[in-house]
């Protein structure tokens, strides 16, 4: 049971898909849900960890052994052999393609042995449980940075410009709506280009193939999606500035603030 005034919070660690295709972890974490007991929180963590493992090659989570395990490569090999798992052999260049080995062999291992591999890869964890004091929540208005890449506008995959924090969600939403309306006035010129592109569209092209604003990477990162998890068709793509979010409201914890 949590100490009085505390709770067990399930958090998602900050992994994202790097442009080279692998997964990369940065600092930071996102609160998902909280529980009165550690056991409940840990059960949910285990469930989520198990789910995500079905979609992830752990050896794609960093380019070298130190991203995966506290064991160096010789010790990792020994550990696996001690547990009845044959590790991959090194190639002619002396390097081992662990990701390829997992892709080919990992699924053939029994579920117990798969679990053992994950146990050795103790740095590849996606969720964590922390006991934390119960905190109030505030609402931050954040400006999203859209950058032109010579073809369309792409939203930065994370962060932005922090405008202000509100105690009330309604106030934050109100301010966010006003800022979005202002931004849409400023960005009106983009719609003219979009209309020109729409005229050039071939019959077999979806309207989303020509979207002028693309925030799919941002949405994927926000939701902690892996490369195998997809967004809905057209989600995060905008043809007209009327719906483009230039500002958004995010929840933030308040510490020492009544």
């Amino acid at each position: 049971m949590a100490e009085p005034g505390t709770r067990f919070v399930l958090k998602r660690l900050n992994w994202y898909e790097h442009y080279d295709g692998g997964m990369v972890r940065e600092g930071g974490e996102v609160s998902l849900s909280s529980f009165a007991t550690f056991e409940e929180a840990e059960a949910e963590r285990g469930k989520r960890e198990e789910e995500i493992r079905k979609t992830i090659n752990p050896f794609d989570c960093g380019k070298a052994v130190h991203y995966w395990s506290h064991l160096d490569e010789p010790r990792l090999r020994d550990w696996l052999m001690d547990h009845g798992i044959d590790p991959p052999s090194a190639g002619k260049n002396g390097k081992t393609n662990w990701a390829e080995w997992w892709k080919k062999t990992g699924k053939k291992l029994s579920s117990d042995k798969q679990l053992l591999v994950w146990e050795a890869l103790d740095k590849v964890r996606f969720f964590v449980v922390r006991e934390e004091p119960v905190r109030k929540v505030g609402y931050a208005v954040l400006g999203i940075n859209w950058e032109y890449n010579d073809e369309f506008y792409d939203a930065n995959s994370e962060g932005g410009h922090l405008v202000k924090v509100y105690r009330s969600r309604a106030r934050a939403e109100e301010e966010c709506a006003a800022l979005n309306a202002e931004a849409r006035d400023d960005w009106g010129f983009v719609d003219e280009f979009a209309e020109e592109y729409a005229d050039e569209m071939e019959d077999d092209e979806s309207e989303y193939d020509m979207a002028m604003f693309d925030m799919r990477d941002r949405l994927r990162r926000k939701r902690g999606l892996t490369s195998n998890q997809k967004l809905k068709k057209g989600e995060g793509l905008y043809n007209s500035i009327a719906r483009v979010p230039f500002y958004e409201v995010i929840e933030v914890e308040l510490e020492g603030i009544e």
């Binding site: 950058e147 930065n156 994370e158 410009h161 933030v252 308040l254 510490e255 020492g256």
Partner: peptide
């Protein structure tokens, strides 16, 4: 965060102190 415009990571927590 390196970006064309000044960009920072999202704030997780706001402190009085």
């Amino acid at each position: 965060i390196s970006s064309e415009f000044p960009t920072h990571t999202e704030p997780e927590r706001i402190f009085m102190d």
